[in-house]
Design a protein around this nucleic acid. Structure first.
Lengths: 151, 151
DNA sequence: AGGAGTTTTATAAAAATTACAAATACGAAA
DNA sequence: TTTCGTATTTGTAATTTTTATAAAACTCCT
């Protein structure tokens, strides 16, 4: 598991650059959001940290996510169809395509939706900070399942 | 309050068209989402119905919102900064500009973000149902407040 | 108006989130 | 290094939000 070690180091550097005190819990949580493209829920993050061999409690997961969000390292994506909010590392501008059946979330690295921010500012007088685009549909696997069911 | 009466009728027709059984609670909730542009939370909807002189319980609000959503009459917008999900009537395509300070939500009737759906389909193989765009920033009132505070 | 089938209500149960104080860990400074 | 002040984590408990349930009330079709 050298990869994991490396990611923990990268995450640690990331935290330091943002002036956030380093702790094992924060490292693991941030590394998880940076590498896995699962867009995990609170519960998934909690489980992941424990399975990585570190102690955590849910309060820490909540606190850490709030902290990382305040520092614009991560963002809420959207609640999945079980009502659980999902989280993502704030990498290059991208949007999310979300399966309404299995909740699989795919990144699309296309920043053209960002251009609408200017228009929004003009229309509303708001001072814009950022924006987010989500697309809902059926992933290929779930399309296939649906096909099979109809036969 | 003739306006309100009219809206209740319009909402009732809207329900009928979708084959949804009519009840006072459903009428008021839908009319509220159709006319107020507050993008209310569960709690706000609950209070509004009561203040309109009808009985409701929270379970009914939850049930009704789920039903209206399933029938694509309304949609979840996004959780506000208190963590409360906001709801909106599904009118013509538009996106939301959300104040991160006071949670005020403004509609912008510009459907250009919808054009990205095609690209998303090609990129991901998903069968797209719909999409949503949210912009976050500071509303004019909160900008002014911030100014005042800095003096 | 009558009656089958829904919906609402009230309440309880479950789940998710937040609060808090004690214990621990971090990292700056010596 | 070791020490020390401060920040963070932990383990509950308390709160809040959401869901489940069964009885009562209501809709709407005839």
């Amino acid at each position: 598991m050298l990869r994991n070690q490396e990611m923990l180091v990268t995450a640690a550097e990331n935290l330091k650059e943002h002036g956030i005190k380093n702790t094992p819990q924060r490292q693991v949580i941030l590394a998880y959001l940076m590498t896995s493209h699962e867009h995990p829920s609170i519960e998934m993050i909690y489980e992941h940290v424990r399975q990585s061999g570190f102690s955590v409690c849910l309060a820490t997961v909540y606190n850490t996510l709030e902290l990382l969000q305040a520092n614009k390292l991560i963002t809420e994506v959207a609640p999945d169809n079980d009502g659980h909010m999902r989280y993502d590392y704030l990498d290059k501008p991208h949007y999310h395509v979300i399966c309404v059946s299995c909740n699989k979330i795919v990144d699309v690295f296309d920043d053209s939706f960002k251009q609408l921010e200017k228009k929004a500012a003009v229309e509303t007088g708001y001072q814009i900070y950022n924006s987010q685009y989500e697309v809902y549909g059926l992933c290929p696997a779930c399309q296939a399942k649906q096909q099979a069911a109809h036969e």
